[in-house]
């Protein structure tokens, strides 16, 4: 998890929750309990959260505060979940969203 800030000159060492496992498109990743799903994904180098319905273009984190809804993904089978404000829970199944589905377009 090289994208984590280990020590910050002003904020010091930030307190993190307990380490949990979750899956991203079936692949097991690690994150911290309670942090936004998007933060855990970013820390694991994941950039693309979804592909748009019409143009099939990639999208990822944009506003990070739940406004823009660009970072939505299919979480535990539910589409359109704003990953930037949804806390990570042990065992969560997070999937790239294609349109409004977790299935790639060619399988839809």
């Amino acid at each position: 998890m090289s994208e984590r800030i280990k020590e910050h000159p002003i904020l010091g060492v930030q307190e993190k929750g307990k380490s949990v496992k979750f899956t991203f498109d079936g692949k097991e990743l690690e994150g911290y309990e309670g942090e936004p799903i998007a933060a855990a994904l970013k820390a694991n180098g994941v950039m693309v959260h979804r592909y748009t319905r019409k143009e099939h273009k990639p999208r990822g984190i944009f506003c990070a505060i739940g406004r823009c809804t660009d970072c939505v993904m299919v979480v535990n089978g539910v589409p359109n979940v704003r990953t930037c404000i949804t806390p990570l829970v042990e065992g969560m199944e997070v999937c790239t969203q294609y349109g409004v589905s977790a299935k790639p377009f060619e399988e839809q």
């Binding site: 950039m47 990639p58 999208r59 984190i61 944009f62 506003c63 990070a64 505060i65 823009c68």
Partner: peptide, 8 residues
């Protein structure tokens, strides 16, 4: 992805 708001 990678174009973000400063707030983000």
């Amino acid at each position: 992805p990678g174009v973000i708001g400063a707030g983000a």
